[in-house]
């Protein structure tokens, strides 16, 4: 047992991801609760594979070494659904067959059993991001910024222990972008979640305030230490 087993936060321990035998990236770092690590890189630099590795979705053509630990728990061999990692995608990906409120209730843990309680919690989450009264709406009728805010609350209601953000602001226009970004980082800080952000936007990196690492496309052995 190494020292990282007792550390809180998200620890990536000697992670090397290979595609067809060639190393795509290697990383060894720790993200403290409430802080953000930003990974910058062009497409093809392996940043999405890193997220896939941490979240448990790495495709079979990729090979990975090393471990990902969350608050001392080794995630590497756990199925995705047991990792307690919240994921935000490039598009909000609200479930189109459910109402806004149902989308949020979907994320609430089943331990909260009463339907009324579940609805109240979901309504409160909506109000928290300035969308009180939007519960009955069809997600498709919301603006991009509103959808992203609902997606954020959906992610947080599932009570994740870490957040992975895969360019979640890229679909928003400039003005909305800063606003939503602040909201995300703010909530993550309040909840003390380690955040791994993947982006190719310099502004995202600046706003995140944490460490920034750059990957270069196609360059073997993108080494990161932190």
């Amino acid at each position: 047992m190494s020292s990282s087993d007792r550390i809180s936060g998200l620890v990536l321990e000697n992670v090397v991801i290979r595609l067809g035998g060639l190393p795509l990236l290697d990383i060894d770092c720790r993200i403290l609760p409430g802080s953000v690590l930003t990974i910058m890189g062009e497409s093809g630099s392996g940043k999405s594979s890193l997220l896939d590795f941490v979240a448990g979705f790495l495709k079979p053509d990729f090979r990975a070494e090393g471990r990902a630990l969350l608050n001392g728990r080794d995630l590497t061999s756990l199925p995705a659904q047991d990792r307690q990692i919240g994921l935000m995608f490039q598009s909000p990906l609200l479930f189109p067959h459910m109402s806004v409120l149902q989308n949020l209730m979907f994320a609430l843990p089943a331990t909260c059993r009463r339907r009324q309680d579940r609805q109240d919690l979901a309504e409160r989450a909506l109000a928290d991001v300035g969308l009180a009264g939007f519960g009955k709406r069809d997600p498709a009728t919301l603006s991009g910024g509103q959808q992203t805010r609902v997606a954020l609350m959906r992610t947080l209601l599932a009570e994740p222990k870490a957040l992975l953000l895969d360019e979640p602001f890229s679909s928003l226009d400039r003005t909305r972008r800063a606003e939503v970004r602040e909201l995300v980082f703010d909530l993550a800080r309040k909840k003390g979640l380690p955040v791994l952000l993947v982006s190719h936007d310099e502004e995202d990196a600046r706003a995140a305030g944490g460490e920034v690492h750059r990957l270069e496309a196609g360059k073997a052995g993108n080494g990161l230490d932190c």
Partner: peptide, 13 residues
């Protein structure tokens, strides 16, 4: 992505 979204919210396949 929807499959991933479900799993990241803790849902089984």
């Amino acid at each position: 992505e929807y499959l991933k979204a479900g799993a990241s919210l803790g849902y089984g396949r």
